[in-house]
Amino acid sequence: MRRRGPLTLVLTGLLGAALGLAGCFTERQHEGEKIYATHCANCHGAQGEGLKRLIPPLAKSDYVAKNRTGLACLIRKGIKGPLVVNDVEFNQAMPAADSHLTDSQITNLLNFVQTSWGNQGEVFTIREVSAQLQGCGASDGQ
């Protein structure tokens, strides 16, 4: 009873492969969401809500809506100094992302922000993001 028969092995193999594949697809689909969870959520909150007057919100942020052309560089390089979001002044430092994000990862991340928590921003193409990043000398062409 303890020994696994060949059939079980095959089944496990198939199941594993199926799970692996599914995992692969969802990973691509949800890349932006995952990057948000690992790189941004500790500060900006799981729902993009921000934290009082320390960390600005990303949900329904007028800054995001008004500064479309600066968003890719903001994520790659961080930002500090006074900044107003929805009439509240913030003045704290946001560091550059803690590990390198490729142009395409930044695209997926921005698109997650643009379409989450009630945001209805226009989505980005990777070309647009790479062009923005070239503007601040930070595109990696990937």
Partner: peptide, 16 residues
């Protein structure tokens, strides 16, 4: 610490 890039904002929001 005030400039903590990793866990502090989340932690302080939980303490809040």
């Amino acid at each position: 610490f005030a400039t903590c890039p990793s866990i502090c904002p989340k932690m302080q929001s939980e303490l809040l």
